[in-house]
Design a protein around this nucleic acid. Structure first.
Length: 262
DNA sequence: ATGGTCGAAAGTCGA
């Protein structure tokens, strides 16, 4: 059975109805993992997802900022929501899929502009988040899939200019090291790079501030699909929907769709 | 060094 899981930082779920409609019409998708929904649970557009054929919803929202949600065509069961910062921010949801596999949807803090925890507390919070998530990850024994906006582009080929971005939050060596420590703590497999290996360039995010995002192509790969080593053989492919960045009223992130034989 | 653009919200902040 092919199971297709899409992850997308929507940057506001309520303004993305047309984009989500176009997405599910463009590709077969069974489960949508969303980040930055930016609304309280009561404001979540459940009717939109029902109309799109995703009536099974697990939402963990908050007013204004952050917020994650999982929408599925078939029943899912919430099995957890971690708060690695212990500050109440809505950045993680876990559900059990019909196959029994657990799916984690994560939104790692962006970390502010200055890559120095002394000058910028948000950067320290990002590193703390990753350290606590690593402790959690090391304890995970069940085979799982982990998707989301991890807000770090780990490889030189995950950014438009490795040298230029070494001191830009999302690609600093300390963040790249923290992400690699997290990945190694469970042996997570970076599935997008299994199918599109370096040195091919691969991006999932382009700033809104570029005059012409496609022409300048100053992208970063911030959105990821990982799985446990035991599930790696079930992964059939990963598609990054670059074209969605050019759709009407886009998010600054594009969907990443992974297909599993599950 | 700065500003460019979004979304949510409210006359600003986080990204």
């Amino acid at each position: 059975m092919a199971l297709r899981i899409a992850t997308l930082n929507v940057n506001g779920v309520r303004v993305r109805a047309p984009l989500l409609e176009r997405l599910v019409a463009s590709r077969p998708i069974d489960i949508l993992c969303l980040q930055e929904t930016k609304c309280a649970n009561a404001e979540f557009p459940a009717n939109l997802f029902r109309r799109l054929g995703f009536p099974h919803l697990v939402v963990h929202g908050q007013r204004m900022h952050h917020g994650v949600a999982i929408a599925s065509r078939t029943p899912i069961e919430e099995v957890g929501r971690e708060d690695w910062q212990a500050n109440g921010e809505a950045r993680h949801l876990a559900v059990r899929l019909p196959s029994g596999v657990v799916l984690h949807n994560v939104y790692v803090p962006a970390g502010g502009d200055v890559p120095d925890p002394m000058l910028n507390p948000k950067f320290g919070q990002k590193l703390d988040f990753l350290a606590r998530m690593t402790d959690w990850s090391a304890r995970q024994t069940e085979p799982a899939i982990l998707v989301g906006d991890l807000n770090i582009a780990p490889l030189p080929e995950d950014v438009w200019d490795h040298e230029a971005l070494l001191e830009v939050v999302s690609h600093t060596p300390v963040e790249v090291d923290a992400l690699e420590t997290l990945r190694a703590s469970h042996g997570w497999v970076d599935l997008a790079r299994r199918f599109v290996p370096a040195p091919q360039r691969l991006y999932t995010w382009w700033s809104y501030r570029a005059r012409d995002w496609a022409a300048s192509d100053r992208g970063r790969r911030l959105d990821h699909v990982w799985c446990s080593p035991a599930l790696a053989a079930t992964a059939l492919g990963v598609e990054t929907l670059r074209e969605a960045r050019g759709w009407e009223r886009p998010s600054d992130h594009v969907p990443v769709i992974a297909t599993f034989d599950l």
